[in-house]
Deep mutational scan, measured.
Amino acid sequence: MVQKSRNGGVYPGPSGEKKLKVGFVGLDPGAPDSTRDGALLIAGSEAPKRGSILSKPRAGGAGAGKPPKRNAFYRKLQNFLYNVLERPRGWAFIYHAYVFLLVFSCLVLSVFSTIKEYEKSSEGALYILEIVTIVVFGVEYFVRIWAAGCCCRYRGWRGRLKFARKPFCVIDIMVLIASIAVLAAGSQGNVFATSALRSLRFLQILRMIRMDRRGGTWKLLGSVVYAHSKELVTAWYIGFLCLILASFLVYLAEKGENDHFDTYADALWWGLITLTTIGYGDKYPQTWNGRLLAATFTLIGVSFFALPAGILGSGFALKVQEQHRQKHFEKRRNPAAGLIQSAWRFYATNLSRTDLHSTWQYYERTVTVPMYSSQTQTYGASRLIPPLNQLELLRNLKSKSGLAFRKDPPPEPSPSKGSPCRGPLCGCCPGRSSQKVSLKDRVFSSPRGVAAKGKGSPQAQTVRRSPSADQSLEDSPSKVPKSWSFGDRSRARQAFRIKGAASRQNSEEASL
């Protein structure tokens, strides 16, 4: 019999049943779409005989028809080659250093092939080196495509196609095609072959870009420019304004007297070369007005044109410092986490200390709560409330009815002989401070409620009492009544008793 458990639990079988086999339907690529829901599959020993999904071999995947050992070796080799080519560490840098020397040698020989004295001697060596480079780069490109299958997102032919569309893979295939075209054109020995050789060798310069396949330098440059984009835009904007204004004023001053400034384009060329401190010297002002304007705008514009270099330099320094700090933080993070875990385990398992309490023990206690009866409008029989619902239920009951529930009420002091009981919340009678006064009792026990209740009776009109401690106690149990005489010590004692009862009640409510 096959059962599914969608909550991750395992159904224990009877003692008479045989052992169960467990598997996940959602992990089987050969299962139909209706059953690939991630549910837990529990099947008996007879299920494989019936041809269940556990008995079927995997229909898809890279190692579907391969033995386990061969499949493990296949995956291990794939991961190894992918890490060597895409994430070089340790001795893997030897291969990348060899590729760099190969590319650099091709670049140097290409430069010498353009010089007439070394053209014949360098062409033969360059031809052999180009063949070696094409073979190495071609094999490396196909190995990269194959090894990318170790990543989940690059599996299958669609994943390989996605990997081949990456920018550096596109550069690799462009350089490979250009190198093959250069060799094919150079072997023909005609004029067209020579011109094609010179034009296609430009694409071989892109080999130097592939040295940084992970794009660390470009990411660093982009992060620095993005972090200081506002400062760079401000400096370039002001420098551009200085360039336009200086070129226009010098053009007006030199026009008609200097042949170097016949057009405004000549003035812009002079301004750009001057403000960037290049100074070719092919154009320069000759009149005193033009020289004065050139000197003034040079002092202003050079500072703004040189400002981005300082901004980028400081940004690079701060970014490198931040990377070093992050690297040290990552080195200290795992030991710190292990130290915290060890300290907590020692703290939680220390049996010699009796003052340690688990944080979840508070929620494991069961509280007896009286249940409210809507018919009699009273609190009758009580029941046990689950631990997770205790706090919310108690808050709702307290807010609606005004009752305070507590588990172990402390012993109440008995009323003394000299001070009789003053009210239901005086704190001297046991069992009276455990409940709050309802809204109805407060209204009818207050002086205003009594006056409103007995407004029509003649006794209420004739008998008038001065405010005393009895009425103030019933009005607000948490307030201290004001004494009408300064020498009345009994009223002071009563006030301290009320304060103590109120503080105890607040602490009990907070504990609930």
Rank of each mutant, 00 (worst) to 15 (best):
Y154D: 00
G8S: 01
N350K: 03
G9D: 02
S199R: 01
N190H: 08
F104S: 05
A337G: 08
L351V: 07
Y127C: 13
S247P: 06
D259Y: 00
G189V: 03
P430S: 05
R333W: 10
P335A: 14
A193D: 00
A294G: 05
R210H: 12
L292P: 06
Q341H: 15
S122L: 09
P335L: 04
E130K: 14
L243V: 08
L200P: 08
K219N: 10
R210C: 02
S113F: 15
L107F: 03
P335S: 06
M1K: 02
A196V: 09
Q204R: 12
L81P: 06
N79K: 08
I278T: 06
T287N: 11
L243F: 03
L356V: 02
P285S: 15
H228Y: 05
R325G: 12
T217P: 11
H96N: 02
K255R: 03
D355V: 04
F305L: 14
D259N: 10
T359K: 12
I238L: 05
W269L: 13
N350H: 06
T114I: 05
A147P: 07
K319R: 12
L268P: 07
F329S: 11
P285L: 12
A265V: 08
T378I: 04
I205V: 11
T274M: 13
Q204H: 09
I340M: 04
C242G: 10
T217I: 09
S358F: 01
P420L: 02
A294V: 08
G290S: 15
D212E: 08
R353G: 07
G281E: 12
T234P: 04
K162R: 01
V250A: 10
G271V: 08
R207Q: 11
L339Q: 04
H228Q: 00
I311N: 02
G271R: 15
A235V: 15
L268F: 00
T263I: 09
H96P: 09
G279D: 14
G159V: 02
E322G: 11
I278F: 11
A337V: 04
M1T: 02
V225I: 03
F304S: 13
E119G: 05
L318V: 01
G301D: 09
A253S: 06
I273N: 09
G239R: 03
G290V: 15
C169F: 01
W269C: 13
R144G: 04
Q341R: 15
L221R: 12
G256R: 08
T276N: 01
E231Q: 10
R201H: 00
G159E: 08
D282V: 15
A178V: 11
L351F: 03
Y237C: 13
G281R: 14
T296P: 12
D266G: 09
A265P: 09
T359A: 10
G301S: 04
A306V: 07
D266E: 14
I340T: 07
D355E: 03
Y284D: 11
G215E: 10
V182M: 07
A185G: 03
L101H: 07
T114A: 02
G215R: 10
S55C: 00
F261I: 01
K230Q: 04
K283E: 02
A317T: 00
A253T: 07
I278N: 15
T217N: 12
A193V: 10
S342L: 08
R214W: 06
L293P: 06
L206P: 07
W344R: 09
S247L: 12
R332G: 11
N258Y: 11
L356R: 09
R210P: 13
E231D: 05
R353H: 03
R291S: 09
R207W: 14
I209T: 12
S195P: 00
H260Y: 04
D172G: 07
A343S: 06
R198Q: 00
H328N: 14
T276I: 07
D259G: 05
A265T: 12
S223P: 14
M211R: 12
G281W: 10
D212G: 07
K331T: 11
V250L: 03
A62V: 03
G290D: 15
R213W: 11
Y280C: 09
S352P: 00
R213Q: 12
S195C: 05
V250G: 11
T194I: 13
S314P: 05
G315R: 06
Y264N: 14
F261C: 01
Q188K: 01
Y362C: 07
V175L: 00
R214P: 14
G159R: 04
K283R: 02
L312S: 01
P386S: 03
Y280H: 13
G222D: 13
D212V: 14
P285H: 13
T349I: 05
D282N: 15
L206R: 13
L85R: 05
V320I: 11
D212A: 14
A337T: 04
L339R: 05
N190S: 10
V225F: 05
M211V: 02
L197P: 13
A185T: 04
F304C: 15
A267T: 13
E231G: 14
R144Q: 01
R333Q: 03
V225D: 13
G418V: 04
W360C: 10
G279C: 15
F248S: 06
T277S: 06
A309V: 04
M1V: 01
P411L: 01
A306T: 00
N258S: 08
H260P: 08
L388F: 02
A306P: 01
R214Q: 06
L203P: 15
I273M: 09
G313E: 00
S247W: 14
T263A: 06
K230M: 08
N350I: 07
L249P: 12
M208V: 10
L307P: 02
E254D: 10
Y284C: 00
